[in-house]
Design a binder for these strands. Structure first.
Lengths: 341, 341
DNA sequence: GATTAGCACTCAATAGGAGAGAGTGCTAAC
DNA sequence: GTTAGCACTCTCTCCTATTGAGTGCTAATC
């Protein structure tokens, strides 16, 4: 279904106006704001047509029109020109990053924060699990008699650690040796590839120090369990409160509660994303509490894993800005990852 | 100023009722709910007195009365019996903790979460800076050619780390040696006590590896900078939304924005706390955005440092429960810290 | 045939007013 | 000192009238 130019123009006017004001847009307003050379009556006729086609709707009989979700969908699919970060914004972002991050996740988190700031929407970042990263380094470090630290580093620079108990009698060189044996068996393996058999092998080789091994393995398993999960980081949740559609505390509460449950957001997104920025408008979202929100999201890849990041806002969203920012930012992320890791 | 028994009884009735319903309380309600043997008219006279004394106020001429902030203050100072955690709650908490924390801060954070859950208020935990903790252990760990990890452990089990760059030529034993030298100079010192002179000494002793030393020192300084700051952890912020006094989104937004700025909350609390649970009712708070909220907080000490934790809710708060829970929990924390660290 | 001006019509939003109800404060009796 | 009784006050809710933005239709115009 394609629309003639005039209808497109009118639809666009209404969308821009409505996005800005959150009020229904009348025929006169369309003519005035955009200096069209046709009369309000003509616009009314066109608007009536657009309503019949489902792109507009009327809150009540004699109000102006607001874009329907289908209208927004048509707009983003067929008409929208995305508005990337301008030079100044890019500069601010690059300055903000400025090497002050320790690992990929820090980087992405900062970018999420930035996105929320410049768009005034709520951003989310899903940092990938370390399932696919490689086991790079492990060490057992004596901290004090009876206590040691298991330190584990993956190839993406993620450092994990956990305290364990060890017999008082154990010496530092012994711990060191054990660490080395762990390394020999596990080094270079993907986290997912570590098998029970590997762990068993370790147990066998280090029989005489069974207790330490057991504790260390427990610690490692617990670290892996923890890090198997994707994490969601949300920034700018307060921005939702600025939108007039959420001046009702109950609605707000539902959304906030939804956001607090990390998994819910993850479940809403597809397993893996292509190279495009994806848009989910209102009803297109599965979750009941999300039918009044839109989601704009994209994947970024970092060495074989996929992370996701995106923005959420009201259906009445500046999609052009959201999509553009996200697109720009995605490129910047991948560029940095390529260079630094 | 002390009140006679009957006035106390009436004040208490009104407070309990108002805390529960958030509605002004009338004289008849007082008589009915608490089965008093005096008539409503008598209660009215007493209420009038209480209003003159400033303990009650009337939203408008012919509504019931609500406790004034002074009324609440009198109540918590002179009448309140705190309601500690009961056995079941304590058990739930202990079960929740169950050794599954790595360091003090994990522990306190979990407790904050628990507090928010059982009280339905918003909890905050201020974990102390590591300024006062002692430097326990440092190691330089080679990760890959050109990269190493600075690992720093304090006596409270806090593990910090940072990546640094090192010359490709450096060997693992060399790094190890350097780590040991760091340890020799720094071990056992309080973080605050580490002086420029110590760092200079290191620089001198390890002249030939100046670059590594510089990077490592930078990393350490940056770690210390970071950890010099106290952190605030907030749980159950959503609970505020349940209170009828905050059904207005604008108020809500102000409070949430306030909470997002960690330092603001810290600035509101006194530098150091005694052994009592402290209460700040409404106007007693400095911050403008907090004049409608009450704060109940206490300090906990862990090896010379003081952390703080507390609850915030509307002025119409169940102080007895908040104070009691906090008091119970504080004991539990200190008990665990004594045992485990 | 498309466009436009004109006008009646619709419906939310706002304001004003009446009535109900909760609760007080006062007075007079106990 | 306490209480019953009653007038009074003030909010809340419902109702109605009014306003105004914006439409939809019709008939005239380009």
């Amino acid at each position: 279904m394609t629309l003639d130019e005039r209808k497109k123009l009118i639809l666009e006017s209404i969308i821009k106006d409505y996005v800005e004001t959150a009020e229904p847009v009348g025929s006169r307003a369309v003519v005035k704001k955009h200096g069209l050379k046709i009369s309000a009556a003509t616009v009314r006729n066109e608007m009536s047509d657009l309503e019949d086609m489902g792109y507009l709707e009327q809150p009540y009989t004699s109000a102006g029109r607001i874009p329907s979700q289908k209208g927004f969908r048509y707009y983003v699919d067929c008409m929208m020109e995305q508005e990337n970060l301008d030079d100044k914004e890019t500069e601010v972002l690059l300055h903000l990053l400025d090497d002050s991050f320790q690992e990929v996740n820090d980087l992405v988190q900062k970018i999420g924060h930035f996105l929320a700031q410049i768009t005034n929407y709520t951003s989310f970042v899903i940092v990938p699990s370390v399932r696919l990263s490689k086991f790079k380094y492990l060490q057992l470090i004596p901290i004090e008699p009876g206590k040691a630290l298991v330190l584990l580093v993956t190839d993406l620079g993620v450092v994990m650690h956990r305290n364990i108990e060890v017999p008082h009698s154990i010496t530092a060189p012994e711990l060191d040796l054990m660490g080395r044996m762990f390394n020999q068996v596990l080094a270079g393996k993907k986290i997912t590839e570590i098998q029970r058999s590997d762990l068993q092998q370790l147990r066998d080789e280090l029989k005489q120090r069974r207790k330490v091994i057991d504790h260390a393995l427990e610690a490692i398993e617990s670290l892996l369990d923890n890090s198997n999960e994707e994490r969601v980081i949300i920034s700018g949740a307060l921005n939702i409160m600025n939108e007039p559609e959420f001046k009702d505390v109950d609605k707000l509460k539902k959304i906030m509660a939804f956001l607090e449950e990390e998994t819910q957001l993850m479940d809403m997104l597809p397993e893996s994303l292509g190279d495009e920025v994806d848009i989910r408008i209102g009803q297109e979202n599965q979750a009941e509490d999300f039918k009044e929100l839109s989601l704009v999201f994209a994947g970024y890849r970092s060495q074989g894993e996929q992370g996701k990041l995106g923005l959420m806002g009201p259906v009445r969203m500046e999609y052009w800005k959201a999509v553009g920012s996200l697109d720009s930012v995605r490129e910047i992320i991948e560029e940095i990852i390529r260079k630094r890791f």
